[in-house]
Design a binder for these strands. Sequence first.
DNA 1: ATCGAGAATGGAATCGTTCTGAATTGGGTA
DNA 2: TACCCAATTCAGAACGATTCCATTCTCGAT
Lengths: 152, 152
Amino acid sequence: MTPTGREELIPALRAAGLRVTAPRVAVLAEMTDGEHMTADQLALAVRDRLGTISTQAVYDVLGALTKAGLLRRIEPAGSAARYETRVGDNHHHVVCRACGAITDVDCVVGEPPCLSPASASGFVIDEAEVTFWGLCPDCQTTSKPTEKERVR
Amino acid sequence: MTPTGREELIPALRAAGLRVTAPRVAVLAEMTDGEHMTADQLALAVRDRLGTISTQAVYDVLGALTKAGLLRRIEPAGSAARYETRVGDNHHHVVCRACGAITDVDCVVGEPPCLSPASASGFVIDEAEVTFWGLCPDCQTTSKPTEKERVR
DNA sequence: ATCGAGAATGGAATCGTTCTGAATTGGGTA
DNA sequence: TACCCAATTCAGAACGATTCCATTCTCGAT
C-alpha cells in the first residue's frame, strides 16, 4: 500500500506523460488498496465499484502504467501476471505454494541489482529478481493437503 | 550439461520408480544436450531425431520426470516453461531480455535456501529463486533495437 | 468549439498448457 | 513364454491469459 491518495492519482498520471482517463484513474485507484492483483481481479474490482470497463482496456491501462513506471508487473510461476504500485525500490516477494498469496519482502542486500552473480557469462545484468517460495501462515496450519496443490 | 550418458538414462528412470518407455528415454536424451528447452522445442527435437511423439506425451513425460526429480521446471516471466537436468544443486539463471537466452548461474551464497528474507511475514520458506535479467553477449552488440523487444 | 492523436471497445485469434477418454504397452506374474 | 493390469501414450477438445485488429470514442491542445 503506497500512501497515494485518490487526489494524487491524476497528477501522477500527468507527471508520467499520460492522458487522464476514467479507466486509468479507476485502475490506479483500485491498485492502491489491494496489492498484487491480476488483470482479471482488477477488471472485476473496477466494474464493481466504478461502473464498466472492458477487459482489454484493463490490459491496455496496465500496459501503459507499467511502461510509464507507475506499476510493476510480476509473474510468479503458475500464476497470472500481477501488478503492484511499489516501484523504484528494490523489494522482492514470498509466494505461498498452497494458496498463491504474495507478500512483499524487503531486499536482503541493499541497492539494486541487489546481487551480482559470481559469473554472469558475459551478460550485462540490470535486475535481480528474487522469489521466495513457501507456505503462508494460514496454509501452514491447514493440516489436510490443499485441494489444488501447486506442483512446484 | 550433466554428465549423464545415454546408457545411464534407463537406470535413472528405473531408480526413480518410473517405467522405461521410448518417449521418456528420448526426451531425457534430448534434454542432456540442449538445456533450458521448452516443451515445444523438445517435441520437435525428439521427432527430428528419434521418430514420432505426441505433444501431450511430451507434457506427460516432462510432468512425470519433474515430479520424480529428474528434471526441474523453470518459468521465466514472458516465456514458456523450460526444463533443465541440473537438479538438486542450488543454482539460478540469467535471462536475456532481448533474445530470451537462459544461462545457469552458480548460487552466490551457498546452501539452499540461499537467502533468508529479513522478514518473511510468517511464511515458512523452502526455496529462494533468483533470476537475473539483462542482455546476453550477442544482444549487447546488436545496435539496432531487437524487433520483438521484451516489455519488462 | 474544433480537431487529431491517443485511448477504449468488442470480437476474434493465438499461445501454452491441461483435461478427458480411449487405445497401447511395459514388466511383473502364472 | 504367454497373460494381464496398471501405467503410459495418444488424439482431440477445452481452457485461461494475453494479444491483435479495426472501429468508435474522447482528452486536451489550439
